[in-house]
Write a protein that binds this DNA or RNA. Structure first.
Lengths: 219, 219
DNA sequence: CGCTTAAGTAACTATACAGTTATTTATGCG
DNA sequence: CGCATAAATAACTGTATAGTTACTTAAGCG
């Protein structure tokens, strides 16, 4: 060993560095992956700490208990999707074209964030117990509901959409059709002997969802 | 063919009685509830044995490991829904009326078997790993696909349904719309400040699904 | 500089957990 | 009856797990 002169910044050697923001972020990222892959009960705090490259003590320091960390992961995942939803700007085409964009936005977001789908599934197996205690979530309404509402009004005014469709129900319908295929494709694939993760199948399902929604909306 | 008369020979005294069928059944029932409530990782073998009122050793005797028991639970749940699907007899009304019955069957089955929905969600978080190894599941095709297929043909022939709809896609669409609402109503409820477990809301969603499917199928 | 505070570490603890051992007892069959 | 076998039990084992303790070290500030 070389001399342990640790007086000032010893550049040549590994020096313990402090970086709270990075530590928090890397714990959250590791926890998201762990909870998404194994569920609440299956996730291991030690595995999260290892994966994050931090000492387990710091995880407790920053986040409290395992349940607190789980809630933080859910809150972050919700904040992220709501932020993305807030940024959609629909093109200036017809209502049908805008609706198509909106459906494909949801489809793309779900495809690109499988961990969000898994967390959602896990938290619902848990009957929403963790999120129920989160005021932060209750404050985050989806910007999509309002966008869908005005799109529906516009479509009805132009005689392109049927009357009387509830924006919330339409939002949940779009989410249903996008979520179910992606989240449950493993059991669907086993049951029906098809590989639903094939890019061509995935592409086709997105178009199918557009077709179902626009078909339903016809006057 | 077994099950001769169970002669419990004694009376006032606590006698250890043997009943393999009952033991197996009660283990499966307890395991179904436990896995559905807590997921694969969260389920506890001791809790299942307690709940079933049997000694843990017997659980291992009948089912092997925890994973084996989990697979048995999934297989039974699948066998049950396939059996129910096989028994539907659609009325003699129009194709639209028959399709409505078919949608409402799915809706009712999901409502009455929340544990099936939770198991499905859990197994998909698990990426279908347990079911992937089950030849028994692969052999169980859904009888609904064929029924939907002939219904679609009939509707097209009568000029009531649009052409070119894939029965598998329609089946998955119906399942999506029914599953998502029920399985994810906890987080939906928190996010949107609505109690989606209200009987009136549940009733309305079933009708909405019928409306979406029939709306889409219009020529 | 020196001191306070927050960031960091290793090792520990008490309990929970999946799976096993050793043993006992009921039951069907010759 | 007597015996082989399957059903049942309690107590146990080695490890994993969430959470903690006791301590060290970097950074910011007067």
């Amino acid at each position: 060993m070389t001399s342990a002169v640790k007086r000032s910044k010893v550049v040549g050697r590994e020096v313990r560095r402090r970086d709270p923001d990075r530590a928090r972020a890397s714990i959250l990222a590791a926890a998201t992956a762990e909870f998404a892959a194994l569920g609440l009960g299956g996730a291991r705090v030690d595995a999260i700490a290892d994966q994050a490259g931090i000492n387990k003590r710091m995880l407790y320091h920053y986040f409290g208990t395992k349940d607190d960390l789980y809630r933080a992961v859910l809150e972050e995942a919700y904040a992220a999707i709501r932020a993305a939803e807030g940024e959609i700007v629909l093109g200036r085409g017809s209502p049908a074209e805008a609706m198509r964009e909106l459906v494909l936005f949801t489809w793309r977001y779900y495809r690109e964030h499988p961990e969000f789908l898994s967390l959602l599934a896990t938290e619902n197996v848990n009957k929403g117990a963790a999120l129920g205690g989160s005021a932060r979530i209750r404050a985050l309404n989806s910007p999509l509901i309002a966008k869908i509402g005005s799109l529906l009004d516009q479509g009805v005014a132009e005689g392109k959409f049927r009357r009387g469709v509830d924006p919330f129900k339409l939002y949940v319908s779009i989410a249903s059709l996008c979520f179910f295929y992606l989240a449950n494709r493993w059991t669907l694939g086993v049951s029906f002997g098809r590989d639903l993760s094939e890019p061509a199948e995935i592409e086709a399902w997105g178009e199918h969802v557009v077709g179902v929604i626009l078909g339903y909306l016809r006057p």
